[in-house]
Design a protein around this nucleic acid. Sequence first.
DNA 1: GTGAATTATCACTCTTTGCTGTTC
DNA 2: GGAACAGCTTTGAGTGATAATTCA
Length: 825
Amino acid sequence: MRTRNTSKRPAQNPPEQSEDAAKAISPKSRDKRKGKLKVGLDHGSSVKACGTDDDAKECAPVKEEGEGENEGDAQTEMDWEDGDIPAMEGFAHELGKEVTVEFTDSPSSVEKRTSQRVSPEEKELAEVVHKVHLLCLLARGRMVDKACNDPLTQASMLSLLPSNLLKITETPNLTVDNLKPLVNWFHSNFQISTESVDKGSFESNVRFALQNQKGTAEEVAALSVVLFRALNLTARFVCILDVTSLKPDGGNQESHRLDTKAISSPIRNAPSTSLLNTKIDSCLTPRRNKRYKKETAPTSEKSDECAEEPKRKGDIEFEMQLQMALSATATTTKTTVHDSSSPAESSGVQRKLRGKSAIWSRSGPPLYWTEVYCSGETLNGRWIHVDAVNGIVDGEDKIEAAAAVCKRPLRYAIAFAGNGAKDVTRRYCLQWYKIAPSRVNMQWWDKVMAPLTELESVATGLGSINKDNTASNPTVGDKQLIGPGNHSRLDHISCSSNRSALEDMELETRALTEPLPTNQLAYKNHHLYAIEKWLTKNQTLYPRGPVLGYCSGNPVYPRSCVQILQTRQKWLREGLQVRANQLPAKIVKPSKKVVNSELSETSICDAEEQSKANLELYGKWQLEPLQLRHAENGIVPKNEHGNVEVWSEKCIPPGTVHLRLPRLVPVAKRLEIDFAPALVGFEFRNARTYPVFEGIVICTEFKDAILEAYAEEEERREAAEKKRDEAQALNRWFQLLSSIATRQRLKNSYAGPSSVSPLEEKSSSGKSGMVGNFKDEVKRPTIMISEDGHEHEHVFPVEDQIFDEETAVRTKRCPCGFSIQVEEL
DNA sequence: GTGAATTATCACTCTTTGCTGTTC
DNA sequence: GGAACAGCTTTGAGTGATAATTCA
């Protein structure tokens, strides 16, 4: 009989059944409801425990110990204790086969909340998965980009193009209007298919799609890039990286969404989010793996582990509905909405799209498109958004709205060209503050993108990307391009850097001209704007202006006006001090703990004195470099505690030096040099903070003298230590060998001739040397038993002795073959 | 039904200058 | 007898982030 050991389980992991049951009922009814535990007896010995009556129907019976050990269900996640409940058996017989236990305690809201909290480990895991997924999707984008450079595909594409559209190649300054006929032709000739055909490689898939004029959204978008590149236009393949969420919970929700996509999505070759999660998860944490398995199981098509888990009723219903909806949609329309989360969602999306962004109603959320460089647009030319699949040109301002409607956050819009990539999210995202928290750490991302951006910049600067292998493979390098007599190439490089720089400027301008958010909360951590209401305790506005606008009556200031405030003490640690006659920028109440400690120490009771205990905060504009007292007459200036706080080099008083060496205090004392212990920090132990000292601070003029004395002292100390160690070693050897000798004497005295100690046996039979350190007193003849069984007294002739001067070990050898090594002290 | 505002909760940060017994 | 050293024991309030709830 096994029972649940709830004491071992953390509160964060309640039983899955209870959690599911909790979801099934509304929070209010859940709180009011009287808890009921239904216990069903199986064969009179097994008890199944379920959270509620309803749950009891779904709970599987608990197996006997040793039975069903390999089951990967949720029960294995529980800790069990062995125990007998004979009374229960008898009780069961009396009552029949079902025992109902009622309890009045309902799970507290705290426990429920706790169960939903994600641990730091889970956050870290989600970040790792996010990063790995990003790298995978970047690699995929590069692969698609490479396929768009295939000369055979491009030639095939040109063969389909009407001759009148070929004139676009003769246009000197390409504009949006020039592109429209071409895009319209593509739009009317290529369609999206829900079925993906795998021909072995993406290039083959694209060729197959070209042949049938039908393919997945990704393939058709790639074909549009093929078309533009075939016409010698500068074009980039752009896609939204639909990556797993940085947040564990978001990732779970998303995994469902993306799993659903895996059923109908044409992106079959892309690494599936759920699969990725499962694979990485299984490598990282088994505990998380179980959780992910459970969540991804209903819809993951490739995850074998997940398939083992029994599907829940709701999941089965969902799948049936999905299949029905897909089949119905397939019969009524020629093209289908690809990769929608669910029929309900897709219909909702369609409805919304009709209202807001009807242009994407044909193919669902925008995931792939093309950017064509139009030199005839604006003064210097610009990149034009072209969604040839949907026949849209220059629709960059609609992408964000369409993605939002389709619940597909626009976090990473990446343009691929020349085997490189560039983050162009800024071009399509107007509300950066919304996506910024869901993007990966900027430093990491910049580091990843830097080499790719360089490749992309070189490639797109060369005009046509596809015709020149050098361009598409810039690893050849700029050095080759800028060879002697290659001035035209040099111009191209210059053009490349100009074009790239102009685009960078454009994106940066967009970043700095983000519209003001309409909700107050958005200003809390907004990178550009701030309102006073959401400033933290240690922040203030300086200067108070300019006011950029208003949100719910609150003036909006530039984020650059937000200044960090700190106490005088804190600024001192940074080598800064408050200028004279400066009033505190802000006065805040200190923590009760600080006030209490101060009150107890100084007996400050009245309100006036208490107000003095308030924390006065100052801003950076009120500071000047720290001016410490100079050391005079060999005396180190110290604080009220008699030490020097060394938070940084700036905190060391002029004319002094900090020596970070141990055991300096006795030396300084002996030389009668003034010094101060160097406080380098605090350590929190036993509910108290303790100062941490490291070395001392002395006047600079004593530095050499004290170091010299320190070196001598250390030498003396090391010599003494060595001497002590040697004496100790000698003593221990003596004790060891004495005990061996005593043992041997006892053996010889009391043991019979046949009994041989293991030590003797080893020495005689193996004829090997025995390392020892026999002192002179151990000189008595050693009687051993030789191989032939005869008693034999070893003798060590002087001529058979070898002395190793390096190790001071003398090897003595008996004619019988026995040898012994003696370390001479 | 949706989005904004408010509230509740949790995890993380900050705090900040001994005492006592034992050994050498 | 004095100096040096090791061990002790494991805060708690404030704050920001975030989820849940309420409100418009």
